[in-house]
Design a binder for these strands. Structure first.
Lengths: 341, 341
DNA sequence: CTGAAAGCGCTTACAG
DNA sequence: CTGAAAGCGCTTACAG
């Protein structure tokens, strides 16, 4: 179908393209009469400015890119939700890409977004990411960039994070307060900073309470799945008959643990207390209800977009911009799976 | 940062812009020597074609729009996943918008995407949608368009659907086969076609088995939430002490039902059998495990994108395109919540 | 208050 | 094999 252009409106009205453009953009130096004529004709013809031309002229697309490891994930879909909503409110659209936890895909996707000339990029790294070249390229090209959740500490960009060490510390301290003496940890993969930090928080809590750290009590997820929860739960009770508490990297895995314990009749929390991380929806409806650390996912999305927008605007105004780090609060949510007392 | 352009490459090499463009696009009528020189300089300068200019010239953006009611929803995030993956494979990017089940937002978002001149639009209607004007505008403008899941039957576009009537019929028949005599239905809101069709399937199954239909046994969700499951479960057992089966519009609500029955000690399936719809992840880990209808969400996403791509390509070739309807198979998944025998 | 003109960075039909 | 030129549809500095 033929799209209406400024030229057509100008010709129909017998005025110049310049004036039509100004009238539609409400410039002050157009007579009211002309303005009204233009606006009403534009409306009649269903005129919509050609974004491709506008983008080319203004060098911005009012579109940002978002790369996340997994869309089908309670935490990430909530973050997406926050970003998309906040972006729309501010006149921006969001292109979503999923790295599937693969570094190769992530690199390709960064290239796609650079190529697409999005106004900015928001990203959470894949578990495989241990190479920064593609991230550095984003910064070198001067593209506004915000990291969240799984971040690279050494990349000097804005970040939206939580204090994983502290949150993990509190979760483990809570288990200790409930009387747990031998606490296992099912941790995340080796690369992600948040898995590392939660592990450090676990160790620090033990140390603080004079409980010796035992590396044999630490189990490392490869894929962070429900099934791994089942498998590690089995392994833990086989290898350590006296474990009485488990701190798990994330709720999905923790629910796997609970599910296995339900099946073989281990009483939670009486025999073994369990606490997860993320406050996934399922955690509050599972039996027993899972204790966890609430992460403000929707708010993280909003904060990430806001930081990006600030950087985009500063860039437009040619103002310097120093990366900012926003740290959001987390809360321990105590439910049935850890309440021994 | 300054971006490299064709012009710069041309000037550096002392050749024309035309030749540079052709060399990079691998036209056959460029000497190998020139081609190599261009390619290697382009690489060195990190050249990336300016998509804004390419879009303007070619009149396509290799970007599609997706409007869904809710991102944070197991079914929809799986569909998004399928669409985003399939799009990327075919060189397309996906802009996501969420209508939040609001007609007003949905209308605004359609306008945004039209304005953005995406190459096509994929959409699932909001529960509020009972007005087609904005959808018709998509078609009138000749924008390739595919509906899925919550569709408008009368809009002549391509569609990816399941046979909701049949699937619901089978689910209810299954309850009857288990010996249920009085089956309640917690249905979805009034507008969505799939809620209507599932309701019809429910009625047909009763009819087929000579069970009288009783409108008092039908409960209508407004927001399709976990909490509504709890509330309706309570209402059902208060109002009808002899209900022995419930067919629920979707798993999220069904899990609410199960959760309430767990709490007050009603035995599922012995006293009341329950079956949901969608095969949400949680359904297989809940106690009791929820019977449900498996909907191939990821495949729906792939099919929707493929239909859209076909229409986009036909439009480019100026070929006529007749809307296609793809109906995907569903399967009943029988788990603990409905197995009386 | 109005408009001619340049230019954003590309693609491609056409000429040589 | 190479290149001059037109044109995609806008925006905006500038002149009148």
């Amino acid at each position: 179908m033929k799209e209406t252009t400024l030229k057509e409106i100008a010709e129909t009205l017998g005025i110049s393209i310049t004036t039509v453009s100004k009238a539609l953009k409400n410039y002050p130096d157009v007579s009211l009469k002309t303005k009204n004529a233009v606006i009403s004709l534009a409306k009649e013809l269903n005129y919509t400015p050609n974004t491709f031309a506008v983008n080319l002229r203004t060098k911005e697309s009012k579109t940002i890119g978002l790369i996340i490891p997994e869309i089908v994930h309670h935490f990430f879909s909530n973050v997406i939700n926050g970003i998309v909503e906040e972006a729309e409110k501010n006149g921006y659209l969001v292109i979503i890409l999923q790295s599937n936890e693969s570094l190769a895909l992530e690199q390709k996707q960064v290239a796609l977004l650079i190529n697409k000339r999005v106004d900015g990029i928001i990203m959470s790294l894949s578990n495989e990411s241990n190479d920064d070249a593609h991230i550095k390229e984003i910064l070198e090209r001067g593209i506004p960039f915000v990291q969240f959740d799984k971040i690279s500490k050494i990349i000097p960009s804005s970040k939206v994070i939580i204090n994983d060490q502290k949150a993990a510390f509190n979760a483990v301290q809570h288990l200790i307060d409930q009387g747990c003496k031998k606490i296992a940890h099912i941790r995340g993969p080796d690369n992600p900073q948040n898995a590392i930090d939660r592990f450090i928080g676990y160790k620090k809590a033990l140390e603080k309470n004079n409980i010796p750290f035992d590396s044999k009590l630490v189990y490392t997820c490869q894929n962070v799945t429900f099934q791994e929860g089942i498998d590690f739960a089995k392994q833990i009770i086989t290898e350590h008959t006296d474990v009485d508490g488990i701190f798990v990297i994330t709720d999905l895995v923790a629910v796997g643990v609970l599910s296995y314990f339900n099946e073989i009749g281990i009483k939670v929390p009486e025999q073994i207390a369990v606490i997860g991380f993320s406050n996934w929806f399922i955690s509050q409806v599972f039996t027993p209800k899972l204790s966890t650390v609430d992460q403000p996912s929707h708010e993280m999305g909003i904060a990430a977009f806001d930081l990006l927008l600030e950087e985009i605007n500063n860039k437009k105004d040619k103002k310097a911009f120093a990366p900012k780090i926003v740290e959001l609060e987390t809360n321990i949510v105590i439910r049935e799976s850890s309440k021994k007392k």
